Amino acid sequence: MVVIGGGTGLPVILNALKDKNAEITAIVTVSDDGGSSGSIRNFINVVPPGDIRNVLVSLSDISQEEKNVFQYRFDSSDSFFSGHAIGNLIIAALNEMHGNIFDAVQSLSKMMRVDGHVFPASNEPLTLNAEFVDGTTEVGETEITSKDKRIKRVWVTDTNSGAKPTAVLPVLAAIMQADAVVLGPGSLFTSILPNLMIPNLGEAVRKTSAEVIYICNIMTQRGETDHFSDAEHVQVINNHLGGHYINTALVNGAKIDMSKFHPEDYDAYLEPVRNDFAGLRKQDCRVITDDFIDQHSGLVFHDGKKVAREIINLALEAMSRRRMTDE
Rank of each mutant, 00 (worst) to 15 (best):
E211F: 09
S297N: 05
K149T: 15
A174E: 15
E211Y: 05
I151H: 02
N100S: 07
I192P: 01
I91S: 14
G116F: 15
N123R: 02
D103E: 09
V205K: 01
D61C: 14
P199F: 10
T8Y: 02
Y266E: 14
L108Q: 06
C285V: 13
Q295F: 01
H302M: 15
P48E: 04
L89P: 02
D19L: 11
V2R: 01
R309P: 00
V47C: 05
G116H: 06
K260S: 06
D265F: 12
K306Q: 14
G253M: 00
R309H: 11
S259Y: 01
S122T: 12
D19M: 10
V105R: 10
H296L: 03
E96F: 08
V69P: 00
A26D: 14
R222K: 12
R150S: 15
V307M: 06
I91L: 07
V234P: 01
Y245V: 03
L316H: 07
L108P: 00
V139G: 13
D265W: 10
S63H: 11
V57W: 00
T325A: 11
G99I: 09
F292W: 15
R286D: 14
K149I: 11
E143D: 15
G99H: 15
N45H: 06
S229Y: 09
T248D: 03
N95S: 12
T325I: 06
I192A: 10
K207G: 03
R274T: 08
F189N: 15
D257Q: 09
R323N: 12
S259N: 13
K255M: 08
A210I: 13
I311K: 04
T29A: 12
L196S: 10
A180G: 05
G253L: 00
P185Y: 15
E66M: 10
A180I: 13
A318S: 07
A85V: 14
A308H: 01
E224R: 02
H302T: 04
N100R: 08
I213K: 02
V118C: 02
V46L: 09
L89R: 03
K152N: 10
T159E: 11
E131P: 02
H227L: 08
S209Q: 07
M1D: 03
P11W: 10
I218L: 06
I52Y: 02
A104S: 09
R222H: 11
L10C: 10
G116Q: 08
H233R: 08
L108I: 07
L169P: 00
I27H: 01
A121W: 00
T136Q: 09
M324G: 15
L241R: 01
D226N: 12
Y72Q: 03
Y269R: 08
